[in-house]
Design a protein around this nucleic acid. Sequence first.
DNA 1: TACCGCTTGTGAACGCTCGCACAAAGTCGG
DNA 2: CCGACTTTGTGCGAGCGTTCACAAGCGGTA
Lengths: 255, 255
Amino acid sequence: MTDQRPSARTGRDRGIPDATVARLPVYLRALSALADAGSDTVSSEELATSAGVNSAKLRKDLSHLGSYGTRGVGYDVELLTEEISLALGLSQRWAVALVGVGNLGHALAGYAGFASRGFRIAALLDADPARVGELIQGINVQHIDDLPAVVEHEGISIGVIATPAPSAQLVCDQLVAAGVTSILNFAPCVLSVPDGVDVRKVDLSIELQILSFHENRKAFGAQPNQFAKKQPPGRLTTLPGGAAGTPPAREVVNE
Amino acid sequence: MTDQRPSARTGRDRGIPDATVARLPVYLRALSALADAGSDTVSSEELATSAGVNSAKLRKDLSHLGSYGTRGVGYDVELLTEEISLALGLSQRWAVALVGVGNLGHALAGYAGFASRGFRIAALLDADPARVGELIQGINVQHIDDLPAVVEHEGISIGVIATPAPSAQLVCDQLVAAGVTSILNFAPCVLSVPDGVDVRKVDLSIELQILSFHENRKAFGAQPNQFAKKQPPGRLTTLPGGAAGTPPAREVVNE
DNA sequence: TACCGCTTGTGAACGCTCGCACAAAGTCGG
DNA sequence: CCGACTTTGTGCGAGCGTTCACAAGCGGTA
């Protein structure tokens, strides 16, 4: 039961499609870069290029938030930044609980990108008593049993699971029981949650496996194309080492 | 032009849709768990449940690989595992170069899930001379300038970027120049690559922002609900300009 | 052998997403 | 004030992905 993506919501969201929501943070980042560069306004074409998307798609995405552009001019960088932030709920600072301070948990605790986007790691928790009390990035590691109290005290509604897979479902249940309603799962497993709780999953090895598929296809795949410059995985030796220069450029983002 | 996934190829892939490819690793994991549990065969319904998807979707996904099920019985766990592995190109061990051994890079280098799925971290690289020579997980950190030699020597075709955003494009170009044709990018930025190179992106803060959207919708969303319970914690005093005074009604939203 | 129950594989309908192309709406110079 | 130019916002068609529902096929049983 339950879908992995918080999306999956059958009803009307707020009118904003899931695909659009997934791109808004990218626009936000592009806008931030533009603001730093001193731009006051930006056209959909420029912003789309920065974000690596089609300009029509960008305009349609933004139109879901309202009409914040000026025809003949473009979008006001600052205004648009605020509107997107508002739509994403970033005008408030969300408190986040991070469970599992192992290898990955440590890295996440120190990840600067969270704080810079308005997320505050309000608690670090672990089931291992040996880890409790450890100080990471100035935050004290607490025992998972303290979760309910911490969640209530800090007003936490988002949880991040960075435990091994076998513990993930248990931790997830504990988070939900404590009142957390959004979960970001780094453990390589499927989580089951009640309705009303959103789960997003980040699986590092799955990403690599998807790349593996494409890599494999490049090597063996049916290539009706004229540019058959790849060779099967006997490989290397003569890879396009020379083709270094300036690539044709093709931007890639993904959700 | 730019499209989301490395996929996005307009022609027929090998017949396998991108959405299916993205789910195959999940099935693989579920199968692995079933095998450990001693199952010989599994029905689409069971496997779908384990993988968290609809059974019809699972059957259609598997049908893209061929007919490996037996009507009235189900799928042979071992056979299906092999077929999926083959389709994903996991029957060979891919060598991976990991660039950037900072906070996140360290964690990735130690991530067990890579090795267990057939990926071998063949090289760790960094631009910081102070880091070169460091031993992480038994692997020596090399300077990024050694990339071409390392890629050729180790037969690397997949690169992982775990550097700060400003360096990511440069590193990406270097990877491409060295012959890497698939890139997993953890840096929060858009990468530009030539055709023929696949990029997948994992952005931790974007995931949180998407959760933030849904969390925000639960709180303020189109639901004039009667319950007004908790209030969102710690709002920002600076950002929203004015509209921050709405009475918060969180919790619930059962749809 | 013939029948029955179970499960796969898939045709078809539906909904979401994307991109084109263009009218609407604004700015700017004269 | 007007007309030319620029850019937004969107109607529309095409393509992909998901789900339903069911016929086809297989094993087991009498």
